[in-house]
Design a protein around this nucleic acid. Sequence first.
DNA 1: AAATTGACCTCGG
DNA 2: GCCGAGGCCAATT
Length: 119
Amino acid sequence: MGVKDNDNTKSESGTNFFERVYEVARLIPYGRVTSYGAIAKYLGAARSARMVGWAMNACDGREDVPAHRVVNRKGILTGKHHFQGTNLMQQLLESEGVQVIDNQIQNFEQLFWDPMQEL
DNA sequence: AAATTGACCTCGG
DNA sequence: GCCGAGGCCAATT
């Protein structure tokens, strides 16, 4: 295969990581939630959970990525502020059957979906 | 170009 | 067992 054109300038390194986050987020089943760390860990960046959040920030415009199903480790809708409107995220979760009270997901452990555990 | 922030998590005292 | 600070990688200003 073309082995010579490995132009790995820092432009492409990392972008793949974002796409990977979208892939996992897209795999999140209906009525289920996960955390940034879980996805990061699945991608091999357990310590870079923050990047997952940044990836979601870039997801603005990608409706294929259910960012509303992604919350922090505590099950709190930390990023609901980044969504359109104020309770859009909560509304979406409730619309899927997820009970969200005070920006906190109820039965979070029960609804938690681990990519490593399922995949 | 450098410094700061950012949708977090993990470790230490 | 609870609280605080640091770390991570990248984007933004």
